[in-house]
Amino acid sequence: MSKLGQAKRIIFLKTADGQLFEVDEPVAMEFEIVKSFFDENEDAADDTVVPLPNVSAEPLAGIIEFCKAHVEFRANGAAGKDEVKKFNAEYIKEKSNEQLKELILAANYLNIKEMLDFLTETIANRLKNKSVEYVRAFFGIENDFTPQEEEAVRKEYEWAFEGVDED
């Protein structure tokens, strides 16, 4: 399929649930973990499969979609423009909280800075003005304060709880 020297290199990635992804090199190199894999194994064969034991297929597909679009934005000089904002807004609109959490775990593991920035901001937007109980449920945090300790912290930060809607 390739003319010598002209071939677009494809990187093979294998997810925790055993799915094989074929990703264009510039997109795969957005993943710091993949980049350092090839930096450390310079003589790795072109068809080397990079194992990603902490990522499953669904979030990886979402991440590839995001990174592919952003690589293209950069190539077209569109970085930072409305086009990008529009894409990001569309991208995140349909994602459930669960999907968002899977994405941030995967983006963290793959070490993709730009996407992490975007995802942390998105999560913050979804947590804005939410109650402590909501945030606990969102992150699956177990409240390990004793009632006395909790009361003491609440009292200390009394000012931060004024005018909060309990939803």
């Binding site: 945030v135 177990e142 409240n143 390990d144 304060f145 912290v153 609440r154 000012w159």
Partner: peptide, 8 residues
């Protein structure tokens, strides 16, 4: 500040 209350 409220996140102080989530957990230790």
């Amino acid at each position: 500040a409220q996140t102080s209350l989530l957990s230790k």
